[in-house]
Amino acid sequence: MNIHPLLPCETRPTDEARAWRNEAMRQIEADFNRSADTHLVRVELPRAPGITLYLKDESSHPTGSLKHRLARSLFLYALCNGWIGPHTTIIEASSGSTAVSEAYFAKLLGLRFIAVMPRTTSAEKIAAIAFQGGKSHLVDDPKTIYAEAARLAHETGGLFIDQFTFAERATDWRGNNNIAESIFLQMEREPQPIPEWIVCGAGTGGTSATLGRYIRYRQYATQLCVADPLGSVFHRHYGDRSVREVEACGSVIEGIGRPRVEPSFIPTVVDRMIAVTDAASIAGKRIISEILGRRCGGSTGTNIWACAVLISEMLASGQSGSIVTLLCDSGERYGTTLYDDVWLDDRKIDIVGPLAQLREFFERGVPVLEQSV
């Protein structure tokens, strides 16, 4: 019996199909072997003595974002389940970065790929998908991407690979070089090797599920904070589990925040959530880009604002320690949106105040307070 109505139901595989699948998995594993681990970047905090901030730089993956890990896991999961064959069209619902990474793996295996995305997705991401040989299918209402992806999969006889459902189960959270294991291994020789906090965002919820489960599995004292756009449902659901959907997320920060609680979001592994306005996220993105000397994406800015709040609280209580967060993707994907002041003005997003707050924090140690929801 097929366990999911949207998944292809494979009959007993032929020797030819089995050989193709083995070769497909070999190619993915070979691609992994060609890739080094991502860097852990230390950020000096001269106004926060005893506290160190680290950024796990996921922008250095071959497809330029954290979602490269997820795409690899989703393809291996689907291959092992018998959902992908040599002629399968791969369909995904995405805000962009996952689609770029999945297009890469589809191209690696010689498969057709279609990304269903909101029409507001940055032109740079659409171009990156095309560069990998994928096709973008844009919709006006972001809430319809799931149904549209399922429809296309039905029409093509393909696979809706469905990151929002399968992210948390496709990743081996016990280890196998997942992002959590990588962080703790890289922290081993640091002065404060066990972080007080790890901060990430939630789009599917797969990364926070992996981090939270691994922390508990290894019995670390580290706490997990999820930084969430103010318009997203996740922080509302965290506070009240009966809240499962909002009319619209409304955030311009791509990749994190959702209008519905996705199946892969596991709130019980999260210790705290911090809601962040778009203006604060964009200010965070710009200030960390100045510090690093290169452009970072919007969700990284969301993480930076949450880190500033946590560091401010640690300073106020006399606490020392380390904090690790994610540099999710490069800012080069947002040159015509988040880095365009005219684009921000058209959407009435004023970053002057939040940017001044973060400058005061990094340069003088002035506390950043959690924004009221």
Rank of each mutant, 00 (worst) to 15 (best):
M1N: 15
E10C: 07
R12K: 15
R21Q: 14
R21T: 13
N22M: 13
A36F: 09
L45M: 14
A48M: 08
G50F: 06
S60F: 05
T63E: 07
L66I: 13
L74F: 08
F75Y: 08
L76A: 06
Y77K: 06
A78V: 11
G82I: 12
E92N: 08
A93I: 07
S94Q: 07
E124P: 04
E124W: 00
K125L: 13
I126Y: 01
A128I: 05
A130H: 14
K135T: 14
V139G: 02
I161S: 02
F164R: 10
E168L: 13
A170H: 03
D172C: 12
A180V: 05
E190A: 13
E196L: 12
S208W: 03
A209Y: 06
R213I: 09
R218G: 06
Q223H: 14
L224Q: 02
A227K: 08
D228S: 07
S232A: 12
V233R: 01
V246I: 15
A248S: 14
I253W: 01
E254F: 02
V276K: 01
G284N: 05
A306Q: 04
S312W: 00
M314D: 07
L315S: 13
A316N: 09
A316P: 03
V342L: 13
L358Y: 01
G365R: 08
V366M: 14
E370H: 03
